[in-house]
Nucleic acid binder design. Structure first.
Lengths: 140, 140
DNA sequence: TTAACTGCAAAGATTTTGCACACTC
DNA sequence: GAGTGTGCAAAATCTTTGCAGTTAA
């Protein structure tokens, strides 16, 4: 995983300014390696005594996404979530009972599916969403 | 695919009443074999001169879902979508340019992935979401 | 200095709730 | 008649926009 410093350096090189809010939000993603929604980010900041306006968080998320620092992850619950856009592509196991999120690596199999689709359909796949819902070891 | 009559019969047997609105909404799903959001349903009804309140549509969607007539499909755009819950499991190719939706059948490969996960993780998968985004033959 | 960033209030979009009335069975 | 279904208004959530003021470089 990229260090927070690497990320901030990358942002600086792309013309972003170093602000307190930006630093803290990047740190939140570093310290919580799972998809986060706006309110969850603000709550984590609040625990550290940092008060940020929700508009600012939404705008910072758009900004980090446009710089490819973070990417969308959708749990289908109507909230926008994002996580660090690292090298390791992974998907999620989401416990519908306790809401815990685990990572799972099945990217090779998904690429295989995409190749099959490319062969059979005249469709250029750019992206996919794949999340698994069920019960974790504690809840099942 | 089940006929509209089969569906209405099934609903009747499960205690649902036959109302004008329910009949029309089931027909919309029959005639549009792709995931639909609340407003899209109401627009299709409006074209037939049928005016239904949005609250009623939301409630009917919940009702049909609880009876397993329809199921959730999430395109990650913040809208709740549903489609008929037929025998053929399929996924979708969504053109990010023209918004066209195609079906694609890769359920066998997905089952294979789920089996792998069951072996490796102590997690009981109940459901998954899998959609592909990209450019269709016309837009690429 | 100046372009990027921030906060606040207000507006938008989607979905849900409460309540009175209507209709199916 | 009883209980399900419907419409309307209002509220609840989540997200975006406009604008004025602040800050990093």
């Amino acid at each position: 995983m990229k260090s927070a410093n690497d990320i901030l350096k990358q942002l600086r090189e792309q013309g972003s300014r170093m602000t307190k809010t930006r630093n803290f939000i990047v740190a939140v993603f570093q310290n919580n390696n799972l998809p986060l929604a706006e309110l969850e980010i603000r709550e984590r900041l609040a625990k550290q005594g940092i008060k940020v306006n929700k508009t600012t968080v939404y705008r910072e998320l758009e900004h980090l996404k446009s710089k490819n620092i973070i990417k969308d992850v959708d749990f289908g619950d109507g909230k926008k979530r994002y996580e660090l856009n690292g090298d390791d592509h992974h998907h999620h196991l989401i416990c519908t009972n306790c809401k815990k999120v685990e990572e799972v690596h099945v990217e090779d199999d998904v690429s295989h599916i995409e190749q099959k689709i490319n062969q059979r359909k005249n469709f250029k796949i750019i992206n996919h969403s794949l999340e698994f819902f069920g019960l974790c070891r504690n809840c099942k």
